[in-house]
Structures are given as C-alpha cells and as structure tokens.
C-alpha cells in the first residue's frame, strides 16, 4: 500500500511514521495508567511493544534499506510479547484464585499500612 500511495505522490515520510508510533505509544501508556482491569493493562502493554516494533521497521526501511536488522528485531519483539502475555495471563489467573479480582485498584496489598506509634 505504501507503494500505491507513493505512486499517487502521497508517500508518507519518516515523520508521519514517527507520529504514528508515538500515538500508538501514548495510547498504550494511557491504557497502562488508566485501565482498571489487569487484562486491559496487558493489552495496553501490547500496544507499547508494537509501537516499538513499528519504529524498528520504519527506521530499517528509511535509514538502511539494504539490511534487515530492524525487521529481525521486530520479530523478536513479537516473540517476547507472546511470551510476556503467556506469563502475564498465568500470573493473573493465579492472582484471581487468591484474591478473586484482577481489579488493579483493589490489588494494593503492598501499600503502607500506617503503624500507630
């Protein structure tokens, strides 16, 4: 599809792609900070990983098209993301068994319990 757009004289430059990855990253970050469900947060983390993978591909394409290093990195990121989801979901299932919730606002057992002097 880039080729078609390039043919139309609308070929997106590196800046456009950067804006896209930044937007993707921002959406992911927002999701991480605001989703109440742990599963939602995991999905938002996927967005972050994908925005990083996309930047690898974009830089590979625009800076050193002869090589494939960036694309290899993107494949790695996808593999890591898959592994991370497996571990993350397993943790959440275990967590749910203990505390019957995956609501992050209620999973606050590390908090400072005021010790009365």
């Amino acid at each position: 599809m880039p080729d078609i757009l390039a043919g139309l004289g609308l070929a997106p430059g590196i800046v456009h792609w950067m804006v896209l990855t930044a937007a993707l990253f921002a959406v992911g970050l927002y999701g991480i900070l605001t989703r109440r469900s742990a599963v939602g947060v995991l999905m938002a983390v996927e967005l972050l990983l994908n925005s990083a993978a996309l930047s690898f591909v974009v830089f590979n394409h625009f800076r050193m098209p002869a090589l494939v290093d960036g694309q290899v990195m993107a494949v790695f990121v996808i593999a890591v993301a898959a592994a991370e989801v497996v571990v993350g979901m397993a943790v959440f299932v275990a967590l749910y068994r203990v505390s019957h919730t995956v609501d992050l606002n209620r999973l606050d057992r590390l908090k400072n319990d005021e010790v009365k002097p």
Binding site: I32, L33, T34, V41, L104, N105, L107, D108, R109, L110, K111, N112, E114
Partner: peptide
Amino acid sequence: LGALHGGRVQ
C-alpha cells in the same frame, strides 16, 4: 511520605 506508598501500581 508513607502516603505516597499506596500499593497501587498505576
């Protein structure tokens, strides 16, 4: 300072 330590990851 302890009030900052709310236990909420987000």
